[in-house]
Design a binder for these strands. Structure first.
Lengths: 344, 344
DNA sequence: CTGAAAGCGCTTACAG
DNA sequence: CTGAAAGCGCTTACAG
């Protein structure tokens, strides 16, 4: 039952005062004109004794917390999972303690999760997927002037926000299809949510059509009920529905890759080939898209770039630079062409 | 710039001493015979002022930390990702602060990650996927007598360990195939690692064969190079290799579902049908297995059960019950029959 | 160059 | 029933 080694222990061992050892360990030895020899000796002793700074005491004393909370809805969603992971990794390498939380843990009552988070005085937080007004309001009335960067969030007014340009996602996909020669295109959109992020998708699609001299109409949108269903399942059902519909589209844009993959199966099950009978584009660019039966053309969400921009903005705020608050950073997606759209 | 509300603030507001308010907030009001009326009044004030206990100060003072570190290698691995998620969720609901870390953040030098973790005095830790001796030794020489439960780890001697019975995984899969009538079965095993967990898989397979009166031989194992490759890709290549081999097996057992799914594509690409030409079993039971072109028969890893057992054991240790240390808890997997093995 | 003192927010004996 | 004091491990002025 070894006790934790504290500064006091190191101080005693090296015959110096705690404050001196503290300064040395923080790398402020030169600043206090402590002789190099002493510094090295102390560091060696600390190392040998296995001294580790106690983050808790540090934060308590300085008020300047080492912790940053990273919240989001990531359960079973590869792309958000990955985003959180990159964000955490960046923070850790900058010397922060990244605290990861998933809204899924308190499903339906995200506010309770925030209570748990609040028990730790953080330097700030990064919150993704703020998709309910209640959650957003709880966030807003929280401690102000602590950096709070939102990511890919439906609600974000008046706060820093980093997000992927959804209108470009559909613009890129639709333009590619149109350029390839498809004109009867169907875009699958979930029916329940009237979210801005989804409307952006619609807008991007409409824009691409317009540029090709076409007018998008209701017939171009396939509204799907996604509530509570698994993406692959949604796709599968959609695929079968499309395959058996009277007037089949030439190309389908799926809301994401998992839906696209399910859709591909649904189409094939009904004897249709991708891309010969129907072309298909996904979005997100999940790794498995590359290994579909027909490698999937998709639009990459650039999670790494989103993560970097987020952490960078967070740091600026933390360092006191609020000159451009609230800032909106829009990351551009990237088209990844594989085989599922063929070439005409 | 609102300051954090502290006990002192609540005490001042309610005209009581800090210690009294502290007792009330901890729910020890009755224990100290504080009048119900006072208690309610104080709680109301605390609530209204938005008081939240400072975990840092609490842990520092009591020494009994609120934090538990949950480490593992989860990046892009759905099944471990999910396991971590369940473990964290359970801890959070028990009032712990779960600190999630991914070895991936410090690839190749897991020890550095442990240093970061050590900055926070934790009540203990849960570590999954301890697959290098170095990591294991670093763990062992860490603070003893703090609960440290390992999960699904290659190295675990002398420590608490919760894991999924890998020999049952392959036993269940193989038995099912044998019962269904297949005899020429191939099991794909990664070539690089001589890990115990993998050998367990071999053993389970051999046992199933033996029970069916067959002797497993080298011909039953297909050694694959998995290093650095993506599971789907591995599967795809394997599928094509198997499809074009001279003496084709009747059934293939894949190391996991992603490999199985890739494999299915590889076979189909070469014109073979699942299960008519070759039957296929995966393991892990990922959600997408259900939505494959041919729904995949698999062996469920029961991550929820593993998570529960882990947290339960952790709590026992934390409460001081070390009577059965070191304990090994073996969770049994479960066969999930879908269509990819057909019926003969 | 080095050390003693105060204090971050809390809880734990102990006193009244 | 309630309060004053000490202390968890650290850092920050300040004194010498």
């Amino acid at each position: 039952m070894r006790r934790r080694v504290t500064l006091k222990d190191v101080a005693r061992k090296s015959g110096l005062a705690v404050a001196t050892v503290s300064a040395i360990c923080r790398g402020k030895g030169d600043f206090f004109h402590i002789s190099r020899k002493t510094q090295e000796r102390v560091l060696r002793i600390a190392e040998k004794m296995g001294y580790r700074r106690n983050s808790l005491a540090f934060s308590l004393r300085t008020g300047s917390s080492n912790f940053v909370a990273v919240l989001g809805r990531t359960f079973r969603i590869p792309v958000t999972q990955e985003r959180q992971n990159f964000i955490a990794q960046l923070f850790i390498h900058l010397g922060f303690q990244a605290l990861l939380y998933d809204f899924h843990w308190f499903d339906g009552k995200e506010e309770e999760l925030l209570h748990t988070v609040e028990e730790i005085p953080c330097a700030g937080m990064v919150v993704s997927d703020v998709n309910t007004r209640r959650l957003f309001q709880t966030l807003r009335q929280g401690q102000t002037r602590l950096p709070c960067v939102l990511v890919d969030s439906e609600y974000h007014a008046g706060l820093d926000h980093v997000y992927l340009d959804r209108s470009s996602v559909s613009y890129l996909a639709a333009s590619h299809l149109l350029k390839t020669g498809y004109t009867r295109i169907v875009y699958t959109i979930p029916v329940e949510k009237k979210f801005w992020l989804l409307q952006e998708r619609r807008r991007g699609f409409v824009r691409a059509m317009a540029e090709a001299g076409r007018q998008a109409s209701q017939a171009n949108f396939l509204w799907v009920e996604s509530e509570g269903k698994f993406s692959y399942q949604i796709g599968l059902e959609l695929g079968e529905k499309i395959a058996t519909s009277r007037k089949k589209p030439e190309a389908v844009m799926a809301l994401n890759d998992q839906i696209a993959i399910g859709l591909m199966r649904g189409l094939q099950r009904r004897g249709l080939r991708v891309p010969e009978d129907i072309a298909l584009v996904g979005s997100e660019n999940l790794p498995e898209g590359e290994f579909c039966q027909v490698p999937l053309t998709s639009v990459d969400f650039r999670v790494k770039e989103v993560a970097q921009q987020t952490v960078e903005l967070f740091r600026r705020r933390l360092s006191g630079d609020w000159s451009d608050f609230p800032k909106e950073i829009v990351v551009q997606p990237e088209l990844v062409i594989r085989s599922s759209c063929g070439c005409r």
